[in-house]
Amino acid sequence: MIQKTILVWLPVLVIGCIFAILFAVSQQSTGEVNWGRVLKGNGASTQLFELKKDTGESFNRNYVRFPIGTNLTAAEVIANEGVMMIRYYDEGDGKYVSYVALRGGVGKNFQITSDHVYELFVSHDLNLSVAVPE
């Protein structure tokens, strides 16, 4: 009887773990760093980042690494329609530094560099276009 129970439960545990791992991998995939797609034409090139709104049903995190040499500030990023917040983790302080598109900009405006990965929150799915420096 005991052997029968083990034989029945073992596949249950194995299948459950497989489901869990698959789910986790699928979720992590939305959290990977978004390098954007480089578009060229008309003598200029831009990098296009596809940003997804995070909803309770679909879990989307927008981790973005901007192109090397980007000369942008957080205020300029949230000036794009639909971008509600940008933040990065400051390892030195052990804190997140956030800039929110509210009341004209709440938080300390910071310079965007390619050294950090930034997290962007958007109010709806959108494409963020960033000029690639020469």
Binding site: K53, D54, T55, G56, M84, M85, R87, S98, V100, L102, E119, F121, S123
Partner: peptide
């Protein structure tokens, strides 16, 4: 949940 989704 909306705060979580919007980040703030």
């Amino acid at each position: 949940q909306d705060m979580i989704d919007m980040g703030f």
